[in-house]
């Protein structure tokens, strides 16, 4: 089995104060640390497990600036054979344009595959669209929110899709296909610094996005970035930790959940 798996480098914004700059034209990410997209970590692991069982190879692909090499090294440390960087300076905010670029790239470079894995969504843009758009453009079957792969045969796979409220559906899909992988599908292996250092010795190929621009046009535009409108929000229990915690216990008593 040959599996192409997409992996994206994203800003870790959870604990950061984000600033909008240039009168809404950009979000300042210059001081934000970056990491691998959580969903892609699970998806790389899943691809590697399948290949470890059935043979073949995993090719990790990232679209981004030179720094994205970091997530490719990580994927190689996890067991991917190749790391391909499609270098593009400007970030495309349109998943449609990104999918067209990727489609052109896969076609032109003739990367062989039985399945293409993406994550369910990027942590930064939360579009949850790239896999579906790519599948449709390539006229391949698509399954999203894959939370379990029950079998992976030569010509088909049986997988579980996550629905809402704990419910799943089992579907059969013919290969080649595109799947978007949901977190929790597996336990991604630990990647040590040593492992990444070793992976650095494996050559990663760099491609220039300029070579794959046919029909790549944005279909949506961002007029402006804004801070979400604030609601009244929480009453903050401030002051010393001791007094805040005492207040908290007071609230629990008042609500009748603690005596």
């Amino acid at each position: 089995m040959n599996i192409i798996v997409f992996t994206k480098r994203v800003p870790a914004t959870q604990e950061e104060e984000l600033r909008i700059i240039g009168e809404g034209s950009a979000v300042d990410l210059s001081k934000v640390p970056f990491k691998v997209n959580d969903w892609d970590n699970y998806s790389v692991e899943e691809a590697v497990r399948i290949v470890e069982k059935s043979g073949g190879a995993v090719t990790a692909v990232s679209v981004g600036d030179a720094e994205s090499d970091e997530v490719l090294r990580r994927a190689i440390a996890m067991g991917a054979k190749d790391g391909f960087l499609v270098e593009s300076g400007d970030i495309v905010h349109d998943p449609n344009a990104r999918a067209t670029l990727i489609q052109n790239f896969l076609k032109k470079e003739n990367v062989p595959f039985d399945a293409i894995f993406t994550g369910v969504q990027s942590e930064d843009d939360q579009f949850a669209s790239l896999g579906g758009i790519l599948a449709a453009k390539m006229r391949l079957p698509f399954v999203s929110m894959v939370i379990g792969i029950d079998s992976f045969e030569k010509d088909h796979a049986v997988v579980r899709r996550e629905l809402e409220g704990g419910l799943q559906e089992r579907v059969k899909v013919m290969l080649p296909c595109v799947m978007s992988i949901q977190t929790g599908i597996n336990e991604p292996r630990y990647v040590s610094i040593m492992g990444i250092r070793k992976a650095s010795k494996v050559e990663r190929k760099i491609f220039k996005s300029a070579d794959y621009q046919e029909n790549v046009t944005a279909k949506i535009e961002v007029a402006r970035w804004i801070y979400p409108p604030k609601k009244a929000g929480a009453t903050i229990l401030s002051g010393e930790l001791e007094s805040a915690c005492k207040e908290l216990i007071g609230i629990l008593k008042e609500k009748g959940v603690y005596q």
């Binding site: 349109d94 449609n96 579009f127 949850a128 599948a135």
Partner: peptide
Amino acid sequence: NSSSGTELASYAAGYFDLPIITD
């Protein structure tokens, strides 16, 4: 914007080559 909603929407966007804005 659910499991099935995003699956259908993204596939339709690619199939018909249409702009998509999710969530």
